[in-house]
Every structure is written in C-alpha cells, then in structure tokens.
Nucleic acid binder design. Sequence first.
DNA 1: GTCTATATCTAGATAGAC
DNA 2: GTCTATCTAGATATAGAC
Lengths: 228, 228
Amino acid sequence: MRLVDQSANAEASVRGEQTKRLIVDTAVRLFREHGYEKTTMRAIAQAAGLSVGNAYYYFPSKDHLVQEFYAQVQDAHHAAWTVASDAATEFVDRLRIAMLTGVEVMAAYHGFAGKFVKTAVEPGSPASPFSEDSRPARERSLALFRSVIDGSTIKIDDELRADLPELLWLSYMGVTLYWLHDMSPGQAKTRLLVEKAVPLIDRLVALSRLRLLRPITREALALYRLLR
Amino acid sequence: MRLVDQSANAEASVRGEQTKRLIVDTAVRLFREHGYEKTTMRAIAQAAGLSVGNAYYYFPSKDHLVQEFYAQVQDAHHAAWTVASDAATEFVDRLRIAMLTGVEVMAAYHGFAGKFVKTAVEPGSPASPFSEDSRPARERSLALFRSVIDGSTIKIDDELRADLPELLWLSYMGVTLYWLHDMSPGQAKTRLLVEKAVPLIDRLVALSRLRLLRPITREALALYRLLR
DNA sequence: GTCTATATCTAGATAGAC
DNA sequence: GTCTATCTAGATATAGAC
C-alpha cells in the first residue's frame, strides 16, 4: 500500500518535473525569439499547450522563469570555458578566456538582456546574483573563476588568494553590467574592455605582493571582508 | 491680434506648467509616503484632482516622474553639501562629506529606492544615470565632485586630474548601489564603507604619482577614456 | 499532487471625444 | 488640455477533473 502510494507519488512528481521543464524550455525559447516583455505568460502557456494557471502552479512569477534562463546561460558558459581553457596555463590567458566565453554565450541575448537586469538588481529579488535563490548558479560561476586561478602558474599573495575568485567574479559582474549598456556593433567595446582590463588585473595582482603596496592591499581586503 | 494670441498662448503654457508642477509634487509626495509601486498613476491623478489621461499628457510614463524625484534628491544633496563642506580643505574630508551627505539625503527613501533602480539600470531608460534625460542631474552631481577636488589642497597627477571628478562620481554611484542592498540598521554598513573607502581612494590618488605606478595609472586612464 | 478553464483584479498605457 | 472608456498583461481566485 505504502509502496503503491510512493510509486504513484514518484510517477506524479516525474510528470510534474516534465511539465516544469516543458514550461521552462518554452519560455526560454520564446524569450530568445521575441524578447522578454513581448513574451506573455499567456503566450508561454499557449505555446506549451497548458493553461496559464498551470504555469503559475510551478512558477510563482514570470521573474522566476528568468532564473531558469540564467541557469542555462551558466551551463553554456561552463561548457565553453572547459573546452577553451584546456591548454591555457597563464593566469592572464585563463582570465581572458573566462570572460570572453562568458560574453560569447550571452551574445545572442543582448537585445533583451536589459529587461532581465531590471529584476536582477532589485534588492531582495530572487533573480539577484547575490540572492539565496541564485546561490547554485553563483557557486558554479565562482568555481569557474577558482579554476582560472588554480589551473594557472601565477604566484599570489597568500591573503589575496582566498578572496581572489570572488573578486574576479565581481569584476565579471561588472563586465556584464558594461556589456548590457554596450551598444557598439557586436559589443566590440566590451571585448576591448576584457582584452585591456585583464592584463591590468594581472599586473595589479602581481603588484600587490610588493612591500610598498602591501598595506593598502591588506586594508582593502579587510574592508571587503567586513562589508560583503 | 498677434499680441493677443501670444498672450493667450503664454497664459496657457503657464497654466500647463502649473499642472505639470502639481502632478510632479503630488507624485513625489505619494512616492515618499507610500513607496513607488504602491503609488499608482490613478492615485496620483486622483490626489492631484486630475484624470489619468491628463497625467500622461505631461509625462509619457511613470518612470519619467522618477526623474523628477531624482532632481529633488539632487537639490537636497547640493544644499547639504554646500553647508557641510564649507570649512573642509582636505581632499579626504571633502570626499567623505560629499558621500555622507549624499547617503543622508537619500536615507528617508531607502525603503523603496530599490524599486527605482530597477528602471534606472535598464539600458536606454530615461531614468538611467547615464542617459541623455539625466544629463542635467548628472552635470550637477559632477559639478559637486569637481568642487570636492577644487576646494581641496591635494596634489594630483595632471593626467588623472581631468577625469577624477567623473571617477569620483562613478564611485559614488557604486556606493549608492551598495546602499540600495544594505539592509543593516540605518545603513550603517554603507557609512562604514564610506569611512574606510575614502581614505583608500585618497591614498590611491597620492600613490598614482609614484614612478612605479605611473604606467599602470596611464593605461587604466586610457582604457577608461576609450570605453566610456 | 497535477492540471484545466474561466472570471476577475490591478495597474500601466492609449484612443478618441470634447 | 482634459476627460472617459478601453486595452494589455501580470497575477489571483475559484471550482472542478483526474
């Protein structure tokens, strides 16, 4: 009896997962094809062959569907990074590859990504890159930037080393924010930003080991830890 | 005849200005009292004794009313800064005062300022601090940070000097972004950020004159100019 | 627990009459 | 310039089927 019930529940939740997946895939496809705002909940439901109420049964709001979109971009970034970083051992090369592959996987969505950031920057929003809901995606992204360092031959100040992955991730968030507002053809300015800023970061990391700059590095790091 | 017509037009546009002003004042008051999202266009119109359509005759969207809100905060910042900075001559003091007065005039709106930033970060939004519509407010804010430098006794690298006001303004935008997400009581963490980060900026500005750091300063500045 | 259908609410935005 | 009526779309409520 109990066994049967569990089996029924298991099958039911499998069906539920499939429906959930169907909604996400349809939504993301329509976002891609028509943009975020022009894709209505009614259109998503209709294209998926479901009722609007059913979509809201699985996702409390349209914003929550964006979260799933992030996850897909995240996966694409990870895949592209894994392939492209294979042979690179220099920190400066690995960081450039990490950022450029990130920009590349986002490229197709530049037209409407601006609509997403609206909800992402709002304090308390589940779509915020700093939110609890975003933790899984954030952890994966942080792991990527940890691998940028760990796979490289760079020497890093011991104290900086612990926080560097997070700092690189933050700078990648900054690049993303710039990219959103970058209206140059093919977002060429963002690529230029990466090409030029990455060597600067590389030099700063190296400089931070100098006696002259050590105090200010320590202070900046202490402040960062205090306020994050 | 022509004279009479012009007079009539003038009177009409005066009345128009009054209506416009009435809408703005009512909207900003309601934003203050109930927050942004809970203040509907209907409520604004009703409280002002006008129709919704009339409000839209003067302001193409609710976002455009936010712009007016910014302007008022801007004015308050300028007034507070002028009073508080009077006796300060050290760059580090003046920058701290500029940032802290800014945080103070925004304090009352912390609860709902997060709703504003949603529209402000969207590329192409008139409410963006980088937009053409925001130019007047931005110019006034830039003038404030120019006065931070000009009223001080600090020695600055010649090349840095030209862009420093803009860089300080940018860092103030960063402080504002942190403040939005700062849920500590009284936004104490943001105040701490200002107290600690301002001396760091002060030291960085001083360090940038050193021979050792000059090349990297030049490069960073060149990149900034290229991409802004 | 999964899903449909439909009516309804809310609020930003617009159209057209006066 | 100003109004009323209307549209659109996110979101909710309800009632019921499997």
